[in-house]
């Protein structure tokens, strides 16, 4: 495993820890999109179907379990926890997330590396992950007071995607026959979605002012 890949996984892990920290210790999920969190839970459930079928490494298995458990825990907190659920900004989290699941599934059926159940689910999860951040970005635009933890959560999530692209470039030149068009194109689309957020995040950090996204 190269350094970009490890750094990418670690920033992904940090993003989840930051979000859980906010929810668990502050007992607030203000500014966090439940729609995005539900999509991530679905993404991991679909992608990690191979968890008990095909073993890669202990690292791989542990990370998969962590991302599965954390995504479902976050959804549970936001839906069921009696204090946390009251802080959920339902009125502004209106992105119709169900409508992007079906097109991703169709795309998975049409564009996959092999027409088997697991491969179709894998491709579906890749397409869905690419757009899963959209409800969160829309909610951020509508949020007056974006707290630091929420902004950091999205920043680390975006950083993870950027690092994965560097990882692919590295692997392309160092490993023979390492070509994954589906994850590369979907990954680049996913990373581009963060462009606007990154711009305003870095600007707010440079000027030492609170993050605000123009509507």
């Amino acid at each position: 495993m190269n350094l970009f890949r490890l750094a990418g996984d670690m920033t992904h892990l940090v993003s989840v820890v930051v979000l859980l920290l906010k929810i668990h210790t502050i007992k607030s999920c203000a500014g966090v999109s439940l729609k995005t969190q539900e999509l991530y839970a679905l993404v991991f459930a679909a992608r990690y179907l191979d968890l008990f079928v095909h073993f890669v490494s202990l690292y791989n298995t542990v990370m998969k379990l962590v991302f599965l458990a954390s995504s479902f825990t976050i959804v549970w907190y936001m839906r069921r926890h009696k204090i946390v659920r009251r802080t959920y900004d339902k009125e502004h989290d209106t992105f119709r997330h169900h409508f992007i699941v079906l097109p991703c599934l169709v795309l998975g059926l049409l564009l996959n590396e092999k027409f088997t159940f697991r491969e179709v689910m894998w491709a579906f999860s890749i397409y869905l992950e690419a757009v899963a951040i959209l409800p969160q970005l829309v909610l951020l635009q509508r949020t007056r007071n974006i707290d630091n933890l929420t902004a950091q959560y999205v920043f680390f999530l975006g950083a993870y995607r950027v690092l994965y692209i560097f990882n692919w470039i590295y692997r392309y030149f160092t490993e023979p026959h390492f070509v994954h068009w589906i994850s590369w194109i979907a990954g680049i689309v996913q990373t581009l979605l963060y462009g606007d957020f990154f711009y305003y995040y870095i600007l707010s950090w440079k000027n030492n002012v609170k993050l605000e996204l123009p509507a």
Binding site: D9, D50, N60, K114, W122, H180
Partner: peptide, 10 residues
């Protein structure tokens, strides 16, 4: 190698 066996990323 099979398609799924080449996937070691998360």
């Amino acid at each position: 190698k099979d398609a799924s066996e080449r996937k070691d990323e998360l």
